[in-house]
């Protein structure tokens, strides 16, 4: 097993130790600006570098991407019906994905409603749903909770048993709704008691 301290041929060698919790950057140091995205797209990087060089930065703490959700800019928004009502959730591998229709309308989980825009909807253009890598907009504290709310409002039934059945088809909600935001969310991390 790798050890923090070990001795080989009389030589002492060290390795760093690990924490049991993931921290966000701003939980550890003071952050001036946030460049979102995993990875941040080159246009946003270019804009940020330009803003620095021109001395044209917004107030400290700003996120350097527009403060609205992906759906606002998404080219599939036009095909989104007035009222989204899904009765079944599909995983991306289960269906042939229509390249023009809103993913949620096709019953495919897409984090667009809970995710900040600015990425050019690159995944959508590649015909795959959003997974939330830009994090939420300024008004949203917990990205996962925001998506749960959005999901709740588009499920097409009031019957409790039906709701349960539909929700059961959602796999790995924590890993999907909080994939990029767990350490900065209200949940923060898995419960230690659950691990031990």
């Amino acid at each position: 097993m790798p050890l923090e301290k070990s001795t080989v041929d009389g030589k002492e060698l060290t390795l760093p130790r690990f924490y049991d919790t993931v921290y966000t950057l701003d939980q550890v140091i003071d952050v001036d600006y946030y460049l979102p995205g995993c990875a941040p797209p080159r246009d946003l990087i270019l804009n940020a570098v330009g803003a620095i060089l021109e001395g044209n930065l917004p107030p400290k703490g700003a996120v350097l991407s527009p403060n609205k959700s992906l759906c606002d800019d998404c080219e599939r928004n036009d095909s989104k019906p007035e009222k989204l009502a899904i009765s079944e959730i599909k995983r991306p591998w289960e269906v042939l994905i229509d390249p023009e229709e809103c993913f949620l309308a096709q019953g495919i989980i897409c984090m667009g409603p809970a995710t900040r825009t600015g990425c050019g909807e690159r995944c959508i253009v590649a015909n795959m749903p959003c997974r939330g890598c830009f994090g939420p907009t300024d008004q949203v504290y917990d990205q996962g909770a925001k998506f749960l709310a959005a999901l709740g409002s588009i499920i097409d039934t009031d019957d409790e048993k039906e709701i349960e059945k539909i929700v059961d088809t959602i796999v790995d909600p924590a890993g999907t709704f909080y994939r990029f935001s767990l350490p900065s969310s209200i949940l923060r991390r898995k419960r230690m008691e659950a691990i031990k």
């Binding site: 995993c38 990875a39 797209p41 690159r122 995944c123 590649a126 795959m128 890598c133």
Partner: peptide, 9 residues
């Protein structure tokens, strides 16, 4: 692939 860093297709 959608994105060159972390393609998705």
């Amino acid at each position: 692939g959608g994105k060159v860093i972390h393609p998705v297709c």
